[in-house]
Write a protein that binds this DNA or RNA. Sequence first.
DNA 1: TAAAAACATAATAATCTTTGCATATATTAT
DNA 2: ATAATATATGCAAAGATTATTATGTTTTTA
Lengths: 113, 113
Amino acid sequence: MLPVESRLELLKVIAHPIRIKILEDLTKGVKCVSDFEEAFDISQPNVSQHLKLLRSHHVVDYFVDGRLKCYFLKEPFIPDLLELLKKEYKRDIPAPACCPVTKKGTYPGERRR
Amino acid sequence: MLPVESRLELLKVIAHPIRIKILEDLTKGVKCVSDFEEAFDISQPNVSQHLKLLRSHHVVDYFVDGRLKCYFLKEPFIPDLLELLKKEYKRDIPAPACCPVTKKGTYPGERRR
DNA sequence: TAAAAACATAATAATCTTTGCATATATTAT
DNA sequence: ATAATATATGCAAAGATTATTATGTTTTTA
């Protein structure tokens, strides 16, 4: 499997509003389940479900501390991705010269946009 | 809206097996619809639907050349992301000292894994 | 030892995505 | 004009994801 495809599942797991917030928080330090519950104002089972998914993809892991579970980041790809998500781009990729050759070749069209 | 959240939609759009392949191909040059049809062996309407989604998120754009539509990459975030997806990591993020303090504080638990 | 706290799991309901199929549109070739 | 090619669109069926509700487990506290 190509590396890009193997990371696809990971990308899907990350691309959720709650889970990305969980991951952002975890880059700042260890958190337990009810920390997320309060921070995002969602139900505890819902937090647990998201954490379960992240766990099953080896994105996070946890310590048991009494009745708390202290979650932490495990997957090194995450901080890099979160960093990239914050990057600002000044302009779009410039359009290629119209009309470059595709597999089908170019037609003698009007080459308008 | 935080930058990370504004890029979330983009991430969701990218995190699809066909669409990521389309984007990979487009980093190599301009392609028309039927190029993808052949390359991934999926129906033409299906290709068009994926391209429509990518278009609506300003990820790609196209030239009209006769009856061909020549698609190209527009969103500068994409090449950087595809690059990052290929990056290899030697090891996981090391686990923090057990058990660090969460909002809830630490319990006098057994601090086992 | 009973109650409470923290978390997990399971089942279901609600929602969103994806695909397939039929059809529509635009352009070129005959 | 008519047919053929290239692509787009609309809609319904199937599939996947997410949130909700109920319940279970473990640990601590009273």
